[in-house]
Design a protein around this nucleic acid. Sequence first.
DNA 1: CACTATCTACGAAAGTATTCGTATTAAAAC
DNA 2: GTTTTAATACGAATACTTTCGTAGATAGTG
Lengths: 123, 123
Amino acid sequence: MAKPTQSELKILQILWDKGPSSVRDVHEKISEDKDAGYTTTLKLMQIMAEKGHAARDTSSRTHIYTASVSENDAKTDLLSSFISSTYKGSAKSLVLQALGNNATSQEDLDEIKKLISSIEKSK
Amino acid sequence: MAKPTQSELKILQILWDKGPSSVRDVHEKISEDKDAGYTTTLKLMQIMAEKGHAARDTSSRTHIYTASVSENDAKTDLLSSFISSTYKGSAKSLVLQALGNNATSQEDLDEIKKLISSIEKSK
DNA sequence: CACTATCTACGAAAGTATTCGTATTAAAAC
DNA sequence: GTTTTAATACGAATACTTTCGTAGATAGTG
């Protein structure tokens, strides 16, 4: 499956968050942040259906769209392509930079440490 | 400074790795991975000079280009924009996914743990 | 039933990124 | 000194993404 574009990702995120939704639903959510025409959102979602990023139920007049990739799978793909284009494939470099540059809270650090421990145990 | 595009990033990476370089140098490196015309690379680098992603020395016939952003700064920007578009701004989510999905080696985990300790000490 | 609001379909325009052909000029090789 | 090689400049073609206007159909309202 091809990578979603930026606009498609925004829509996917809404579908992941809200579950199956109409164009109207998605459009209203998008409009909170950004001024956009309704048919723009419609067109994008139609393209997503064509590309297979979303499935749609056309049984009633108002079509209902559903993300056809799971949030985790899609983000795994995006992350791995980001790591390969920006960090030459080194997940470590990415993590070091993410932790080094951003002020990560102690709670978040704790969670990360916990995950690392559980990874180490399972080896 | 605007975010570099994918193609520009590939070129920047070469400039970071090799230091100041001619179009020929960069083009040869790119050609290892991908078939591309010389003038394509030239044009991209000219655009990068226009946009300010690279500086060029035109004192001799063969122009020499230099990245005008540091690798760390550019990647910090890219990372932060990736985190905001894909992880709703949560660096923690990104790190958890990067560690969770990729098989990170023990050495890498050790390095990450070391960094976390040093962050914690400096708080 | 007529009127209005709301939906989809479709195509085209606008914006951005990438690719490359051609012309011109400068250096190098012979 | 002439020919070949290698460089830049420039503009246009291609491709991909985003935006939106218009048309036609369906549902709801008075």
